[in-house]
Design a protein around this nucleic acid. Structure first.
Length: 347
DNA sequence: CAGTCGTGGCA
DNA sequence: TTGCCAAGACT
């Protein structure tokens, strides 16, 4: 039997008051600090963000300090968090607030939506948490929790399914304690109403949950099918001067994957056999292989970029040496490997 | 609108 | 070891 919306809402708030995690960004009311936390938390685990949030606020304690910082310093503080566009947008947002809003930080969701890097979710989260505005903030947790609550048969990535979730979220947001409510809904999704093993027996709102009543909460949310990833074959080549130990790096294009970061030059080929021949064909007997990482990249946008940077003067006497060879790696593991071996600190 | 953008944890 | 995906925004 479905209980009333206000009753379920009150039950979830009561549970949140008792069982919420002690997160550092819940100990502040500084809207800038909350903004930083929300951007860091986009598509990123709480435990990962913990390590960055404190340090970020020590380095850039105010909107003004972030706005006047160098891009290099900003990216350096972000290094390892991923989705580096977020760091650039965060600084662009700080500059926007200083230059366009006269330094006055927005206080409403509508205002926040005009800030670079702040979309519908983040605008609602900041407005409700930092300013108490009764607006919804629908993230992946909320999509999951509410789709289970409704036993929603429409996929959440369809227009109709998303509309149903947004409608319910808006109704629920219009009640007491908007900030606590926003966090309570996400907290439930993060700790009890989890993707693979929901703890319905501990859930404060299971009595009103249609999926729990059906006995199969993990059937929701429904999702449309994902497409198959495409493959790209690449070589990472690193040149080092034996005498000095100096290594040859190139900077990636500002746009796209790992934009603006440093790496060994990569050769790209759609054909595996051609890729296997490229490094030696290009460098002949003049050089030995220093680093020769054979990579299969999925979901990589660099397919067309097969140009090889010229080897700068003074490195011609270096040696190419085989360091490692891999059959293939998924993107996440590939990037881990690239970061371990290829990425330089930016600051 | 569908594609793109990182990383780390976990079953 | 491998696939999946988590506090999304932008183009």
């Amino acid at each position: 039997m479905q209980s009333s919306l206000p009753a379920s809402r009150a039950a979830l708030l009561g549970w949140f008051d008792l069982h919420q995690r002690d997160l550092p960004w819940r100990r502040t009311r500084d809207p800038y600090a909350i903004w930083v936390s929300e951007v860091m938390l986009q598509q990123t685990r709480v435990e990962t963000v913990r390590r960055y949030w404190d340090r970020w606020l020590e380095t850039f304690p105010t909107v003004a300090s972030l706005a006047s910082a160098s891009t290099e310093a900003v990216l350096s503080q972000w290094q390892g968090l991923g989705y580096y566009r977020r760091a650039r947008n965060l600084q662009a947002g700080a500059i926007f607030i200083v230059e366009q809003l006269g330094g006055a930080i927005p206080t409403t969701a509508e205002g926040w939506k005009t800030v670079p890097g702040v979309g519908p979710y983040t605008a609602g989260a900041i407005a409700s948490i930092a300013f108490g505005e009764p607006v919804p903030a629908v993230d992946g947790n909320v999509l999951r929790v509410l789709s289970r609550w409704l036993a929603l048969e429409r996929p959440i990535d369809s227009k109709e399914g998303r509309f149903a979730i947004d409608s319910l979220a808006a109704d629920l947001a219009a009640g007491p304690r908007p900030g606590a409510w926003t966090q309570a809904l996400m907290e439930l999704g993060a700790t009890l109403c989890t993707p693979t093993s929901p703890a319905c027996l501990l859930c404060p709102v299971s009595a009103g949950c249609a999926a729990a009543a059906m006995g199969e909460p993990t059937r929701f949310p429904l999702k449309a099918k994902a497409k198959a990833p495409r493959e790209v074959h690449r070589f990472a080549l690193a040149l080092r001067q034996p005498e000095t130990g100096a290594e040859w790096w190139v900077q990636r294009d500002e746009q796209g994957l790992l934009g603006g970061l440093w790496e060994f030059p990569l050769l790209t080929s759609l054909d595996e056999a051609q890729a296997a021949a490229e490094p030696l064909a290009h460098h002949g007997d003049l050089l030995h292989i220093f680093t020769h990482i054979r990579l299969t990249v999925t979901l990589c946008s660099a397919t067309e970029d097969a140009t090889e940077p010229p080897i700068p003067d003074g490195y011609q006497t270096g040696r190419w040496v085989l360091l490692e060879e891999r059959e293939s790696l998924p993107q996440s593991r590939l990037m881990r490997k690239l970061r371990e071996r290829l990425l330089l600190p930016t600051g």
